[in-house]
């Protein structure tokens, strides 16, 4: 148990990095533009975990001041990530609008087919 516990207490970092790297992999490896944007949002949400999980204190509670509690988790990462979520949706919306326009101009959302068409012109 003594060797497992430190790994368990770093498990959230491992998963965070796994999600981050998966998002990066999707963005690089997949040619479909909607899939690319999904990969980008996976990457973004891994950053939420990266910020919020160090702010947690094991005996703490949500940072809403009340006489019954004295230990609160750190509110600052929560504020930063609230901003990040909303900005993430704004970028996703802009990217999807671009995808709609690209589909209109080329008739496809596959990157390879668009490159082939550009070469053919």
């Amino acid at each position: 148990m003594n060797t497992i516990t430190p790994l368990l207490l770093h498990y959230n970092y491992f998963i965070t990095i796994f999600l981050m790297v998966s998002g990066l992999y999707i963005v690089i490896a997949r040619g479909n533009m909607i899939k690319k944007l999904v990969g980008l949002s996976l990457f973004q949400s891994s950053v939420y975990l990266l910020y919020v999980s160090p702010g947690k204190i094991l005996e703490g509670t949500a940072p809403i001041i009340d006489d019954a509690y004295s230990i609160y988790s750190n509110p600052l990462p929560h504020v930063l990530i609230l901003t990040a979520i909303v900005v993430g949706v704004a970028t996703l919306a802009l990217g999807l609008a671009l995808v709609v326009r690209i589909h209109e101009a080329y008739g496809t959302i596959e990157e390879d087919e668009i490159f082939d068409r550009e070469k053919g012109l």
């Binding site: 949400s45 947690k56 949500a62 809403i64 609160y72 990530i81 909303v86 949706v89």
Partner: peptide
């Protein structure tokens, strides 16, 4: 993780 406000935003926006 005690981030209740972030969770609510993620559920509605995300």
């Amino acid at each position: 993780l005690d981030a209740v406000d972030v969770a609510m935003t993620e559920a509605s926006v995300g």
